[in-house]
Nucleic acid binder design. Structure first.
Lengths: 192, 192
DNA sequence: ACAGCCATGTAACTTGTTACATGATTTT
DNA sequence: AAAATCATGTAACAAGTTACATGGCTGT
C-alpha cells in the first residue's frame, strides 16, 4: 500500500502527471526503489475511481500530459496515512526468518549452514552499500541506503541470536508428530 | 515468494496435505504470521503445475485429504532458495522510509512530526512485544518476536539519523525544478 | 440423524511486475 | 520527413487476502 499513498503525497504539492510521479518517486528514494510506470497509471486510475484524485484538465500543459490533482478526500486519506504506523496486527513476513524457521527440518540441510550463509551475504551487501554511500551527494540516496544498512544489521543480529539458541539446543518442535498448540485443534487423522 | 518455498521446505520432510501445511507454517512462526488456507491450495496448484510438487495419492489416508510430495525438481528449487539471499538487486520497499521521504513536501505537514510519531509507535510496539515474549514457552514465537524487535529497533535508529540530518539542514531536493538524473543509480546493476 | 468440525476448493479483489502497443512532441 | 523520446495505456501474470461454497467425517 506504499505506492498508492506515496502518489497522494507527491500530488499534495501540486498537480502532476504520470511520468513525473514516477520520476519524483525515484528521486525521493535515490533510485533504490524503481517504480514501474505502468503501475503509476493503474494506481492513478484506482485513486480516481475512489475519489482521492481528480483529473485537473486545465490548459497550459502539453496535450499528451494528463494532470491529476489531490481531492479533499485524498488529503484526508494522506494525512491519516502519515500518522498511522504500518499494520501492527499483521506485521509483514520476513523472508530470512521464514527460511530459517522452515530449514531445520529439511533433510540434508543444516540450519546452521543456512544461518551462516545468510549472515555472510548480509555482511557483503552491507559492505557494498557502505562503499556506494561514499560519494554521498544525494541525501535521499544516503538516507535510503542507511535504512537498508540498519535492516541488514538487524538481520545479522537476529541470525546471531538464532545460532546461539540453536547451539544451546533450543529447537522449535521439529517433526510435528503432535501439533500441541493449545488453541489449534489436533488433527487426529494424521497420526498413524 | 516466501510462502511458495516455505511449502516446499515443509514437504521435504514428508508428504502432507493442505490444511496440515497451514498449521505447520503457523507453528513455525509462532502464529505471528497466519497463513490463509486458500493461498495454500492455490500455491499447491501452481507448484504442481510447475512440477515442483506431485500428488502422492497413496492409500492409507482419509479420502478427503490430498497428499502432496516434493519432486526432484522441487528439491533442487528448495536447496537453491535456502542458499540464496533475498533479492539484493531489488530490495523490498520500506513503508516507513517511503513515508518520511515523501512527507517533507506535503503542505501543512512537518516531517519531524511524522518522524516522532513513528518513533513513538515503534517503541510502543516493541514494549508490547517484550511483554508478550515473557511467558516464553514457544521457541518459534520467541525467535519471530525477536526478529520483529530487531527490525523495529532498526527503524527507530533510522528515524533518529533522519531527524539528526533534517535538523542539520540536510533535506533532499524538495521541489524538483530539475530532475538531475546524473546520479549513479544504486539498483541498475547489470541484469546479467 | 444432525450439528460441527475437517478439508478442499473457488471467486473476486488488490498490489505489483514485465512486456508490449500507441499516439504526441521534439529533434535532426 | 524520419528518428528519438515523451507520455499514456493495456494485457497477462504472480502473489496475497477475504469470503464463500461444498463434501466428508465424527461425536452425540
Amino acid at each position: 500500500m506504499s505506492v498508492r499513498h506515496a502518489l497522494l503525497a507527491l500530488l499534495a504539492e501540486e498537480p502532476k502527471f504520470g511520468l513525473r510521479l514516477k520520476e519524483e518517486f525515484e528521486q525521493r528514494t535515490g533510485s533504490v526503489w524503481p517504480l514501474n510506470v505502468g503501475q503509476v497509471y493503474s494506481t492513478l486510475q484506482r485513486l480516481e475511481r475512489d475519489g482521492l484524485v481528480a483529473n485537473a484538465d486545465e490548459a497550459g500543459t502539453v496535450a499528451s500530459q494528463k494532470l491529476y490533482s489531490l481531492t479533499d478526500d485524498g488529503g484526508t486519506e494522506l494525512r491519516s496515512w502519515l500518522s498511522t504506523p504500518p499494520d501492527d496486527l499483521n506485521p509483514s513476513r520476513n523472508e530470512v526468518v521464514i527460511k530459517v524457521m522452515v530449514a531445520f527440518s529439511v533433510p540434508g540441510v543444516d540450519v546452521l549452514d543456512v544461518v551462516q550463509d545468510h549472515r555472510r551475504q548480509a555482511l557483503e551487501y552491507m559492505q557494498r552499500l557502505t562503499r556506494l554511500k561514499a560519494p554521498g551527494d544525494d541525501v535521499a540516496m544516503v538516507l535510503v541506503a542507511d535504512s537498508l544498512l540498519f535492516r541488514h544489521e538487524a538481520t545479522i543480529r537476529w541470525l546471531d541470536t538464532c545460532e546461539a539458541r540453536f547451539r544451546n539446543g533450543e529447537l522449535p518442535p521439529a517433526r510435528s508428530t503432535e501439533l500441541a498448540t493449545g488453541a489449534a485443534p489436533v488433527n487426529k487423522q494424521v497420526k498413524q
